[in-house]
Amino acid sequence: MSIIVESVSKNFGEFQALDRVSLKVKDGGLVALLGPSGSGKSTLLRAISGLETVDSGKILINGQDTTNLDVRQRNIGFVFQHYALFKHLTVRQNVAFGLDIRKRPRGEVQQRVGDLLELVQLTGLGDRYPSQLSGGQRQRVALARALAVQPQVLLLDEPFGALDAKVRKELRAWLRRLHDEVHVTSVFVTHDQEEAMEVADEVVIMNHGRIEQVGTPEEIYDNPATAFVMSFIGPVNVLPGHLGLFKTLTTQETRNSNVFLRPQDIEILEQPHPEAIPAVVARIIHLGWEVQAELALPDEHNLTAHVSREQFKSLDLRVNQNVFIKSKFAKAFPEVEVFR
């Protein structure tokens, strides 16, 4: 079931949460809405669900205009950040809730609840209350509850936000596998770029109520459309373009642009090279799996580079050592905004 969002706007008083947002999610897709807090990603999700009304624009689910439909009539599944489980009901009763509301026959309800508990690997915990479950288990109950009514689309608001790091990682991989099994069109909200990249087919990056870029994780990483996207997807070094540090970039860029380059994309050389510039090693930090080198450029700008342990050993890097650096990948963006 596809989702189409057409030029949707939403204000909360003075605050513009969504500014003419348009988006297409294809049938069976798994899409991440990624952005910092206040970027409008949760509002967009709630607008798709019908929990939030929109000021203008249209929302179509499976080709049907649902803009003025109540959340109850949209047949969506919603997973809340803090699960919103009904504490007075058992796991089984929570999962059965939507089916009971729809007055499905008892046998069918029991069958479906049993299937879902198996799907989310909670068979045997059906008679527990939510307070007797761990965070990850609660999240899976919330998912089963949302899936029970066979929704057209599944919407998840920061589904792993309240979990600790280890459980979060496990559940991510699990959600990916679950989606490959169930194939329901899914949209989830996250502020964690790693999570978005790992789980989603397609990532939608939002900022200030607008969509900055839509693409596969690879597209977004390899070809960030805006300075915001580049700086939001992992750490970057930002240097003023007028320095002309990188000869590969000077042809395309103006003096007013900023050059963005990722620490992983910096190559450190011992010998001069036509495309490299000189630098001095200011500080070395061992991160375990790789080594971070802080480099001082001639004009008092600093740069962070990550090198693998092998490279570090073969280069035999030391503080105050003179080296030459070369970028494997860099992008220039005309904005002068400072991020984060």
Binding site: V71, A84, F86, I101
Partner: peptide
């Protein structure tokens, strides 16, 4: 009581009365 549990009930198709009787009131 979180507002979210009411929204969860709506998203599962419960009417205002059903939401009150089955979700808000029991706790």
């Amino acid at each position: 009581q979180e507002q979210e549990i009411e929204e969860a009930a709506w998203s599962l198709g419960a009417s205002p009365l059903q939401t009150f009787v089955r979700v808000i009131l029991p706790p």
